[in-house]
């Protein structure tokens, strides 16, 4: 039942089209009404060429990338991200992950290094700690 995860494993990449809709929907779903995430004209006045994705959406996408891979019984413990090149509309962000540590325990935890690249560079680098699903199919939270 327990899938063997190993240090050094790569997660399959996930490509996320960065649409204007995703940027706005993510901002509103995260209750972030900063104009740079929905109003292109005001974003330009603030020195940005267009609206750009807010950090909460990036955080949510990184979380989703991990739980998509490890399954719904895996539980996020820590997500630490740093943003670089902005996610502008029309770009594609490619998320990749690499398991850097497996910690024994009940439940065991995996540490995953995550990067998300777009056309202009590295949008996000992050480190995620995730509790791995145990043998029971029930939710692994505690």
């Amino acid at each position: 039942m327990t899938r063997a995860y190993r240090v050094g494993d790569d997660l399959p990449p996930l490509e996320i089209p960065v649409t204007r809709t995703l940027i706005v929907a993510g901002a509103i779903a995260s209750r972030d009404y900063q104009d740079v995430h929905h109003d292109a004209e005001l974003a330009r006045e603030k020195g940005s060429p267009d609206i750009f994705m807010n950090i909460l959406t990036t955080n949510g996408l990184v979380g989703r990338y991990l739980t998509d891979h490890f399954g719904p019984t895996a539980v996020l413990r820590k997500v630490a991200i740093r943003l670089g090149a902005p996610n502008y509309p029309g770009d594609v962000m490619r998320l990749t992950g690499h398991i850097t540590d497996i910690r024994a325990g009940e439940p065991a935890e995996a540490v995953v290094q995550v990067t998300g690249d777009n056309r202009i560079g590295r949008h996000v680098t992050g480190t995620v700690t995730i509790a791995l699903p145990g043998p029971s199919p029930k939710r692994g939270g505690a």
Partner: peptide, 20 residues
């Protein structure tokens, strides 16, 4: 919906909120 996150952990009677 915004994140495209379809995990069953966030739906149904035992739903939790996405940690992020």
């Amino acid at each position: 919906e915004a994140m495209g996150d379809t995990s069953p952990a966030y739906r149904g009677p035992d739903a939790v909120a996405p940690p992020a």
